[in-house]
Design a protein around this nucleic acid. Structure first.
Lengths: 175, 175
DNA sequence: ACCCTCTATGTGATTGTATAACATTACGAG
DNA sequence: CTCGTAATGTTATACAATCACATAGAGGGT
């Protein structure tokens, strides 16, 4: 169990604890495994093919629990013996995003594993500008004043991007 | 229109009417001039310097009334005799965004002139996926359920990106 | 088994987006 | 005028995304 071992230095570069999701501690080891299992189950149910490349990308994003750029992902794929050209990563990401396993963070041009896959949801994100941690939450922008404005002018909303930038509780504490 | 001043390259003429802002008709000629005048006034009031490059970029974005990529802007600057390297465009855009004259549309990696400069506001956008038209509206995501979720976990929101993708009234009519 | 088709992968090349680093110029305050 | 700062110019490069085309596999139907 990693989740009460804050001093773990196995991850060199980011001063970021993968056991912190949604800015809260959890059993990281377990969550990766169960998420992968769930994904596999859902794919076989719906006739989707969670191929090795796609599975590897999803695993990586679950493992890191933060937003990764496409080229970081590509580097990792290369090291694992997969194709090394950008389309390899982008195609896997396209599949995962289309089927709700992964979200794209537009603000960062990066990708993050979905926190509650399966459930139909329009996600919203909180992005810490200090440590780059990303937490997923729910949003319903079409329900509020913005949705009313859209209806008023006759704009038909299909999808919304909601991303808040700020300081996460962890970085607030440190300051 | 600017796209007629450009060299006869392969840029497709947008099937988009600049007199349609916020998906509604308006006096385009007039709005560009007054917006530029207002910007100049505000700059001299606040000690900001609306230099030739910055002014040109703002004028271009007002003229087009749609989201333009940084390199389209850069091309135009080059033709007007300004520097031709990316930082020239990006620095001007940084200035305009920082001071609220222009917004960045994260979803498109593009920039659009602000519809109500001066007023403090957290903008929200509607982006038509057919014609790429962009309309600006107001949002207050921190007021709703999302804001509550942020407060609950101790995340301090500084800025939010709200962008809705869908079909604008004009394109709905045509279909 | 076979062929067929559709999906997925692999690869090279290219285009678009953005920033780092450093030199130079313009401007204002003292 | 001189100095410090802001703005511009330029080279180079990193990162993001797509195009085009070739190859490999998985499944279905005969």
């Amino acid at each position: 169990m990693i989740w009460n071992n804050m001093t773990s230095d196995t991850q060199p570069m980011p001063t970021y604890d993968p056991a912190l999701v949604g800015f809260q501690k959890h059993d990281h080891e377990n969550c990766v495994e169960t998420a992968l299992a769930t994904a596999e189950e859902r794919c076989s149910e719906e006739g989707l093919r969670l191929t090795p490349v796609r599975r590897k990308v999803l695993e990586m994003l679950l493992q890191e629990h933060r937003a990764l750029g496409a080229y970081v992902i590509l580097d990792c794929l290369r090291e694992e013996g997969f194709g090394s050209q950008p389309p390899v990563a982008y195609r896997a990401l396209d599949f995962l995003v289309e089927n709700g396993f992964v979200h794209k963070i537009e603000r960062l041009n990066a990708f993050v594993a979905c926190s509650h896959p399966g459930a139909i949801h329009s996600p919203a994100f909180m992005i810490c500008r200090k440590c780059d941690a990303v937490a997923e939450a729910q949003s319903a922008p079409a329900k509020g004043a913005f949705g009313a404005a859209a209806r008023a002018v006759g704009f038909e909303i299909e999808r919304t991007v909601v991303e808040a930038e700020g300081i996460c509780p962890d970085c607030t504490e440190k300051a």
